[in-house]
Design a protein around this nucleic acid. Structure first.
Lengths: 216, 216, 216, 216
DNA sequence: CATGAATGAGTATTCATTCAT
DNA sequence: TATGAATGAATACTCATTCAT
């Protein structure tokens, strides 16, 4: 049992551990979404995974931790999905549009993750920050840099960058929520275009905009 | 026990009924917000109201119904609050701005109602439409008429009106949620101004907007 | 609802409460004795009492509290039993003999109470003092006064009174335990006589006693 | 693999077996005493011994057997300890005193063994005789012979020998229990002296003893 | 009408034991 | 032989709801 073997052994174990954790979280996310947190029975989760209930507790110390881990996993996946969407564009403005569409597309493909985020805040009101807010704050900085650069390049109006990030963040969250709860009413692409159109250009006519800006 | 007395008696009863229902819903809304739906004990509700537990069940057939009635009441109050805010302005654009600020202000004053809406969807996933969505759809028509008129008056750009209502609705919901969950970071007035600024004028510079619109 | 009625109502309630508590404790003591603490199922207790499980928890906040209350009740009953036994005698020495016999007789009649005391210490090792020790210490003073008087009257040898109380207490506890666990091997009366004979007169012959006392 | 090697191998194995069993029982006794039977986790036992959980089951078929073996081991050690104490004296009466002191001293040095005996009866009520009672009965005969000889030698009063053995056995058990549970209140030596004084000489004064014996 | 005592369904979690490696 | 990952039986406690008074 030399260090190499040991190390290899550990690697295998860690891989196994990570794989099984992931499987559990995937199935758990779906179950939580289907039944709600309270309605989700640990026994059913074990049955769906074809493992004993005790095994679940070897990986996650409680149902609550399992839920929160699933929510966290959802946000990591969202991040990857967004990054992939953004990377497909070169122009910063197109990156913004792509991020908006990717955000909505992600939750459209994974309604169970939308459900997780909605439930988390309702059930674990004691947590300082829900998973969603935490991830949002983590990404804030890079968006603000991007907007700052666009302002300096004269492509975006001069305004505090946090105004842009706040409005867009809140808008996409609200849209995701409404889509999930009330059902999406139009093509995803069109929906993203609507958002981008309003956020980029505003709703006022040119003449009215001049008047409105003059008044302030 | 003549008809008159009976009728008067009924009137009195209905008044009493409505008053007590209202008291119950007020206290219930606060309790649900403090403890969450599951954590809210009917016994504690009865204690806070100084009535027996059985009495609650004379007014509402179940805890669930009580919760949903409280959520519905919150939305009625929101409606009244918005109407009052809108009525203070004459200009349609200012009415829009006022409605946005009133919406955020309402939930700022009544965080327990924000909590109710958040919890409702998480807990009663079987309901066709959450209270919030139902009320939103109920008010949709009048807003669309208002935007249609503004477009015809050349004050708002020509675009499908649902685009405007969707974006604004989702944006204020998302903002309300974020405020409630993560705490509001700036003055309510400034926050409303940010939203109005972006929605009315967009974020692009004049030159960039022309280019962007040219590309479509 | 004048004070008298109220008072009467309360009395009735307290009576009812006390009666039901007592019934529960009686049945619980037997069940704990039969099955042991861990083996005693709250459901079975409820069944034997023909009440719902929830009712038990209206009277006792936990299984543990129920057990401890039953142990405490056992000690109160022992005390009453001892007092009755002692009261039947006038002569102090006969009172001592009577108390010893009563102690053994009590646990002979109520083996479930013996079981309770034995289990208590094994299971609730965190308690400062088991019920038995607490009651024992509570009664210590009066026995010491009695022995002191007997010494002053020249009926008991001059010696520290705590020596007498300790030895007798430990002896009757040990005898109770052995009887309960291994079964009593002789008539209760004879057993008590054996104890009294040894404690009162010692085992040494007269000559040997003189030698032994001379050596010290 | 010739017979000799095999034989030697077996011998070695048996030694190893015995040594490891002993180690396990030592650690187990301490753990059971610290946490109680139910609170003692086989995992923690394995950890303290730096072996796998499965290994424990190669030595003892169940947790219960492990506990009982530990209790049995405690009694064997007590026996050795008593024998050593007795062997230090020549005079039978002094041997009795020595045995009493040794008994109390043993459990004073090994409170974990006291705990084991207390727990055993509470938890394994199905056993015919607890370990303690079994060992006690095993030693009964030799003590009775000793007392019989003392009676014939006129050093102990004429009385049934079982009276003496019962009283002394029960007394030392009760004292051990009280010491363990409530804490010893005086020097071990003094405590033993108290017991011996009462058992040997009784508590009555000479005159009262004559009267008492006359009455019977 | 009002009460609140009684109910009992419903569930997360633990941990001794097994057995494939 | 030794291991420790996997198992699943077993159980106290809560709290919405009922209904006799």
């Amino acid at each position: 049992m030399n260090p190499t073997q040991k190390s290899r052994g550990r690697l295998v174990d860690e891989e196994l551990w990570g794989r099984r954790s992931g499987e559990i979280l995937d199935v758990a996310a779906t179950l939580f979404a289907e039944r709600g947190y309270a309605g989700a029975d640990t026994q059913e989760l074990a049955d769906r995974l074809s493992v004993g209930k005790g095994t679940l507790y070897r990986y996650f110390p409680s149902k609550r931790d399992l839920f929160l881990a699933a929510a966290d996993r959802a946000m990591r996946r969202l991040r990857e999905y967004l990054d992939a969407g953004i990377a497909a564009c070169d122009d910063p403005l197109e990156q913004i549009a792509a991020a908006i569409e990717a955000f909505l597309g992600f939750f459209d493909e994974h309604p169970e993750f939308a459900e997780l985020l909605i439930q988390e805040r309702a059930l674990f009101r004691d947590r300082n920050k829900p998973t969603y807010i935490e991830h949002r704050e983590k990404n804030l900085g890079q968006w603000q840099q991007l907007y700052q650069a666009l302002i300096e390049a004269g492509r975006v109006r001069a305004m505090p960058v946090h105004r842009i990030t706040s409005v867009i963040s809140d808008l996409v969250y609200g849209t995701m929520f409404t889509n999930h709860v009330a059902g999406r009413q139009k093509a995803l692409r069109d929906q993203a275009d609507d958002i981008v159109d309003v956020v980029f250009c505003g709703i006022l006519s040119d003449s009215e905009r001049r008047r409105w800006e003059g008044n302030r």
